[in-house]
Structures are given as structure tokens and as C-alpha cells.
């Protein structure tokens, strides 16, 4: 089996220990896609790392190179399943991942994940038809308030509220206190 390749190969150059870390990262990444089975994950990661090592640019970090390859492989595989606009492949990645998640693809067809095999029709259908959206096609409607929904008298109501600022508040407080004392006095309390 051969992992779906994305780009031409370049010369390799980093120590094996670094590639070990890169391999682990790719395995985590595959598991993050809910791909099951240690053997399957290890095999797929090994294939990706081989490609990454072959195309690694001088000075590039193995982890970065490996993940770049993994994403390129994923993009290429998704592109083979879902028709996409050539100019911008990023929406494809998001749409494809949503389809993988909602269609349970890594669970249902693990042997096809990132592989060149001719995919079953059901897998292709699931990948093409499964998606999420925030609603049906938008048909904008005008919805704006009627000119005036309150009476002119109502406009003065904000004066019922005590004004902001220390001076108006102190004045209001004094006025209220005097009113209460005055009422008590006049009532002969």
C-alpha cells in the first residue's frame, strides 16, 4: 500500500531521533482523526514519514516537515473524494474533516483512510453529501422598526431616572430627604 503523495521528493537530512519525535506527532495526528488500531496508525505514520524524509528541505524541522506532509496527504486524499475549487483548498480541508467526522469515515472505512485504493461508492457519497451549515440558502428580508412606536410624552421619561454624575445624585438625594422630612413634619409626626 502506498500513502497518497502530494509533492515531489527532496533530499533528507535530520538525525533519526528527531524523526522519531516526528513519527510520534504524526501518529497523534492520525489518532486525533479517530483512526483506530495501533498497527494501522503506525503503518500510515511510517509511510508519511518516508515521504516527508524524502522531500525534507535543508534546515527544516522534522516535525514541521512531517506535519506538512501529513496535511498535504490529507488534502490530496480529500481532494480525490470531494470536488474542490483549485484556487483555495483550505475550505476543502474543513469540509472534508467535517464529512470525516459526521460520516464516521475513519471508523467505517479505516483501510481507505489516506490510501490510494479505489474508494467504495458509499464512502464517496458520504464524503460528498455530508456537511454542516448554519441554515438553508439565505434569502434576505427587510425587517426594520416602524418610525415611532412610543408617544411623545414617553420621550420625557428618562428624566424619571436619576441623572448620572455625583452632583445630580447628591442633589436628588437631598431633595428626597427633605421631602420625607417635610412630609413627616407636616403630618405632625
Amino acid at each position: 500500500m502506498e500513502v497518497m503523495k502530494a509533492q515531489p521528493l527532496l533530499a533528507a537530512a535530520a538525525p533519526d531521533a528527531h524523526w522519531g519525535v516526528a513519527t510520534e506527532r504524526v501518529e497523534h495526528y492520525l489518532r486525533a482523526h479517530r483512526l483506530r488500531g495501533d498497527d494501522r496508525v503506525a503503518r500510515l505514520a511510517k509511510d508519511i514519514i518516508e515521504v516527508a524524509r524524502a522531500r525534507q528541505r535543508p534546515g527544516a524541522e522534522p516535525v514541521a516537515a512531517a506535519m506538512e506532509t501529513a496535511e498535504a496527504c490529507l488534502m490530496a486524499w480529500l481532494g480525490s473524494l470531494i470536488p474542490a475549487d483549485d484556487h483555495d483548498l483550505r475550505p476543502l480541508l474543513a469540509k472534508g474533516r467535517v464529512a470525516l467526522a459526521l460520516g464516521g469515515v475513519p471508523d467505517r472505512w479505516p483501510e481507505y483512510f489516506l490510501r490510494h485504493h479505489r474508494p467504495p461508492e458509499e464512502l464517496v457519497r458520504v464524503m460528498r453529501e455530508t456537511g454542516l451549515s448554519c441554515g438553508p440558502r439565505v434569502k434576505l428580508t427587510h425587517m426594520s422598526p416602524s418610525p415611532e412606536n412610543f408617544a411623545p410624552a414617553g420621550r420625557r421619561l428618562p428624566w424619571l431616572a436619576i441623572s448620572q454624575g455625583p452632583l445630580p445624585r447628591v442633589m436628588t438625594g437631598l431633595l428626597l430627604t427633605l421631602t420625607v422630612i417635610g412630609a413627616a413634619w407636616s403630618a405632625g409626626l
Partner: peptide, 16 residues
């Protein structure tokens, strides 16, 4: 950010 699927579901709601 970290989970590929959560990231994808989140991105499906955003406009580029």
C-alpha cells in the same frame, strides 16, 4: 485549535 474535527466544525461556521 488542537482537535482536527472540532477545528473543522468551528471553521464551517466562519466566513473567510
Amino acid at each position: 485549535v488542537a482537535d482536527p474535527y472540532v477545528n473543522a466544525v468551528h471553521l464551517s461556521q466562519l466566513r473567510a
